[in-house]
Design a protein around this nucleic acid. Structure first.
Lengths: 130, 130
DNA sequence: CAGTATCCAGCGCGATACTG
DNA sequence: CAGTATCGCGCTGGATACTG
């Protein structure tokens, strides 16, 4: 048994865990956190492999949870920026250790990319439709 | 854009995120971490609502990932204990902020239970079969 | 550019029952 | 006690195509 001060009880699941556990959620939080403000396409590029549907869905969920905000500009072509709310920022800070842990673990398995990654993540391109 | 030192790149998902994001995984890690050594039934009680199948599955995954270990004693009735490996312990430390964040968030929404929870989590009972 | 609209497969996960 | 066996539903999220 560990020290009492480290005993953490999370009795209810129905809160954030259901959001966090969605495949891309914490990576989106991280992407926006990294950038300060991020556009749809930028997040899409950071998260190599998300489909626009999934990204849109998850962004909506995160908005509903007040973790991110959305600002759209009346321009052509349209521009939309996402940013972390204060709550989102606190969440990001809370997941930093987890992200670092994950990155470190990958390093130990001789994966390619680590943190800090000065060049940013690998770029994925959305296949243009003909 | 945040400070470079805080820029965290996690380019690959196929590592731990897929495990973490399984609904009960981090709660199991936490339960075992809280207890030091935990038996199947104890974890089942901590995690109000898991089915034995899901628990067994997830425990197996976590073993495969070397995050937890398993020791079984040749007794009747059988006794099995789970514990965190060193890697599991480091993971647990990495998720503590996240768990606290979750708990704090629940408090702000006037949920019942918080941390530290000296009485431990609520007990769920496995319905005995006749 | 920043999405929607569909369609659909897979599997996560719960319910229930049984066992060494 | 600590699981396994089976069944099945629902939701996640990928593929693809289209749009204001």
């Amino acid at each position: 048994m560990c020290k009492e001060s480290e005993y953490i009880c999370v009795c209810r699941l129905d809160g954030i865990i259901n959001i966090i556990s969605k495949k891309w959620a914490i990576l989106i939080i991280n992407s926006i956190g990294n950038r300060g403000r991020a556009r749809f396409n930028q997040i899409e590029e950071d998260l190599e492999g998300v489909s626009p549907k999934t990204l849109a869905d998850t962004l909506k969920n995160l908005q509903n949870e007040q973790l991110i905000g959305r600002e759209s500009f009346n321009e052509i072509p349209p521009r939309v920026e996402y940013y972390l709310t204060d709550e989102g920022k606190s969440l990001r800070e809370a997941i930093v250790p987890l992200l670092k842990w994950t990155a470190d673990r990958d390093i130990n398995r001789t994966r390619i990319c680590a943190y800090p990654c000065k060049n940013g993540p690998n770029r994925a391109k959305r296949v243009s439709l003909k």
